[in-house]
Design a protein around this nucleic acid. Structure first.
Lengths: 232, 232
DNA sequence: CATGGTTATATTGGATCCAATATTAGCCGC
DNA sequence: GCGGCTAATATTGGATCCAATATAACCATG
């Protein structure tokens, strides 16, 4: 019985917040686009107050930028910004991985393996959304064992801030295959409790992602110029 | 017209946000204390709407925690939390310092030196508030040269989150003297563009702070138990 | 034709009001 | 006296309304 799965949040602001996050990751709210409060509020069937509060959270997280009296726009990341985010992730995830590798329980390992299976299944189905979700679950199942909640929060934030740019990476079958390969190696390193190897594998994993983003956003030949532009 | 200074009154939410930050750093809003919206709004002479928006920003930054239908409380840091924050700062500030040391202009160096002088003057005056302000200016004058805005934002956040606990460190003359000594060494390393030494000095600087906090918050003999409790 | 100013419109910012829920106080039965 | 139930109160959550300001449209003028 599915029962009361994914019960709607207790407060409207949380519902709005989740909706906004989803809209940003799917590209419905494109980077750089202004957020018309009246429009969004009406679409979600709520007033502007909870919407504004949700926007403030995203502002505090850096997901949107606020221009007084002019409104909110989705934060736009240049290639330079993306590189910076990945560099910071490098520093923080290495620490988290080292701290986590010795603390993961068997149940944790099972969750990592399950997420990995889900990633592969979603990949074969070609379901990008499910793939990004499972991929996130995979990584945080590992890092989550570090026992450093603030560190995890920051890392989660960094992931969020690049969500709008992540799906483009999974668009090619070659990248998807590489992700699978690298995930298997990462899982093996976790099982062996080999911190050094784990950190190294995660680093190359990220490097591949940033290299792909570099090609897509600012390719040498200049075919495409900007971030994924999603028409309505 | 009287001077057209850029200090025109910003939006109310920004005024409220600054007030809240100040109240947290001074301890007027103590860690763990609930934030009564009606009371705070009335004291600031504003309605609850901009207050709630400001609180949402602080929530996104992790400065306050939000319990649906129950309100906001100032985030409380255990000793473990403080250690975690300083560990993360370790990782991020080392990176920022390395990136900054080669990019600082002469004007930047002058600002660092000026901040250092201000720290010493405030210390001799015994003005703790001015000392924490100048200390912050000193450190960010150095780190600010890194050219990584997101990294700086995160570091700033980490500083904010421990502001309520910082002033206790400056309470003893011994600690104040040590800060001066270490600042001079740090400034010298910056002037020499010696990244390795700078990173090392910053690390011991932080270590001393966390050691002092450890003594104050959880001393071996157990004279004091909790965070700085500031009566009205 | 360009440009500057003026009005009209759209959009955000903030305050007040009402509803929903949590907290407390009081009461009853055991 | 103690635990649990119920009513009264306090506090937060959300919607609507009005004010302040930015943006767009328009017209006059050089």
């Amino acid at each position: 019985m599915t029962g009361l799965r994914s019960a709607r949040p207790p407060t409207v602001q949380q519902y709005v917040l989740e909706s906004l996050r989803a809209a940003i990751t799917t590209g419905e709210l494109a980077p750089g686009a202004p957020i018309r409060q009246d429009t969004v509020a009406e679409r979600l069937g709520v007033s502007r107050v909870p919407l504004r509060e949700a926007l403030k959270i995203l502002e505090g997280e850096g997901q949107v930028v606020y221009l007084p009296r002019r409104g909110y726009i989705v934060a736009e990341l240049s290639l330079e910004d993306l590189v910076e985010v990945y560099r910071i992730r490098d520093l923080l995830e290495s620490e988290a991985a080292r701290a986590a590798v010795g603390r993961l329980t068997d149940a944790d390992l099972e969750r990592v393996a399950e997420a990995q299976r889900d990633v592969e299944q979603a990949a074969t189905r070609g379901d990008l959304l499910a793939m990004t979700e499972a991929n996130r679950r995979f990584h945080f199942a590992i890092l989550g064992g570090c026992g450093m909640p603030r560190l995890l929060r920051i890392i989660r934030n960094l992931w969020d801030s690049t969500d709008a740019y992540r799906s483009v990476y999974y668009n090619t079958t070659a990248n998807r295959a590489r992700v699978e390969r690298e995930h298997r190696a990462i899982l093996a390193a976790v099982r062996r409790r080999d911190a050094d190897d784990l950190v190294r594998l995660l680093a190359v994993h990220r490097d591949h992602a940033v290299a792909a983003l570099r090609e897509i956003i600012a390719p040498p030949d200049g075919t495409a110029r900007r971030a994924p532009s999603r028409p309505e």
